[in-house]
């Protein structure tokens, strides 16, 4: 009986973790940022308050917003939660993890982005179109680098399934691999770009000409905005989770091992806290770059990923 319930249990645990932990991660990053700038923070739970406030508020729709504009928040949220149900966060023994390998996961995020960009175009303002155009520029440049990075990781693990990658890495002795280091470097740059963090986009800005992500969702309000914000937080969390599963999976609960779960949770929290520190340090040190420097930024991500692939063949 427990055998039958276990997959459902672990899957729901996973989804709940993703839903709850993602605002926490963002809250943690904001708290750290406040500390680093000498301000007093609103606490790690502030994103929850923001989201619940938005849910209660009235939704104002532009007059000419079509059904695409209204459906987009739900589709974005749906695709992101779906991705959250697939990426192994606490255990590799996830019933849905075989649903999509990492390439399909990237495509799941692409659905969300596709609809966001359409919604940006839908209301017919200059900002929305600008946001969509820029977002798609960034993503189209990130894609080759992302694939190259995936290629390198899959060379090492001979799999593109995230659970399998985590399993292979944890079950083999630790080896120094320059290819993985390069792939990680590339992945970090891509993740920063995809999540609209500094130096590519500034998540905190509403300064007109520098916005990318915010420009697309400028017309959203109320529960629609709440869903989009939440999905965006989950996206950051999930990219962190992908990074952990590909490069630092040690500590994740293995197959049929419920006993490892508490330790897995603690380690996950620890890793995420470190990632938060890293993001804050990076955002404090770096300045947002000009939009047409982004191709070079992502070009270097592609270079790192390619060097990773090359060094796998040459050096390993």
């Amino acid at each position: 009986m427990t055998k039958d319930i276990y997959p459902i249990l672990i899957e729901s645990l996973q989804v709940v973790t993703v839903l709850v932990a993602s605002p926490l991660l963002v809250g943690w990053i904001r708290v750290l940022k406040c500390w680093s700038q000498g301000r007093s923070s609103a606490g790690v739970f502030q994103p929850f308050r923001d989201i619940s406030k938005l849910f209660i508020k009235e939704t104002v729709l532009a007059e000419n917003a079509s059904w695409i504009f209204r459906a987009t928040p739900y589709i974005v949220f749906g695709a992101t939660v779906m991705a959250g149900a697939i990426i192994p966060v606490i255990s590799v023994d996830l019933p849905l993890s075989a649903t999509a390998d990492i390439i399909a996961l990237v495509a799941l995020f692409a659905i969300a982005r596709f609809f966001l960009a359409l919604a940006g175009m839908d209301i017919g303002t200059a900002f929305g179109g600008m946001g969509s155009s820029r977002e798609m520029m960034v993503s189209s440049l990130a894609e080759p680098a992302m694939l190259m990075s995936i290629f390198t990781v899959s060379l090492v693990n001979s799999s593109t399934s995230l659970s399998q990658m985590a399993l292979v890495l944890t079950s083999n002795p630790i080896v120094l691999r320059p290819s993985l280091a390069f792939a990680l470097l590339a992945f970090v740059l891509i993740a920063l770009a995809e999540n609209g963090r500094i130096p590519v986009d500034n998540p905190a800005t509403h300064l007109e000409l520098t916005m990318i992500h915010e420009a697309m969702i400028l017309e959203y309000s109320g529960r629609h905005l709440a869903l989009l914000e939440w999905a965006n937080m989950m996206k950051l969390f999930l990219f962190a989770a992908i990074g952990i599963a590909c490069f630092f999976p040690w500590g994740i609960a293995l197959k049929d091992n419920i006993g490892m779960l508490p330790a897995a949770f603690i380690l996950l929290a620890f890793k995420l806290a470190l990632i938060g520190v890293f993001i804050v340090v990076a955002e404090t040190v770096l300045a947002k770059m000009r939009i047409f420097r982004v191709p070079e930024f992502l070009g270097s991500a592609f270079l790192f990923a390619t060097l990773g692939m090359l060094s796998y063949f040459i050096l390993e």
């Binding site: 739900y74 589709i75 949220f77 749906g78 695709a79 939660v81 779906m82 149900a85 849905l96 075989a98 649903t99 999509a100 390998d101 390439i103 399909a104 799941l108 659905i111 001979s158 799999s159 593109t160 399934s161 399998q164």
Partner: peptide, 18 residues
Amino acid sequence: ERASYSAPIIFIGILVIF
């Protein structure tokens, strides 16, 4: 173990969450 993709589950999953 190499790679897998399940379109029906993704389709139904997104629909259900939606």
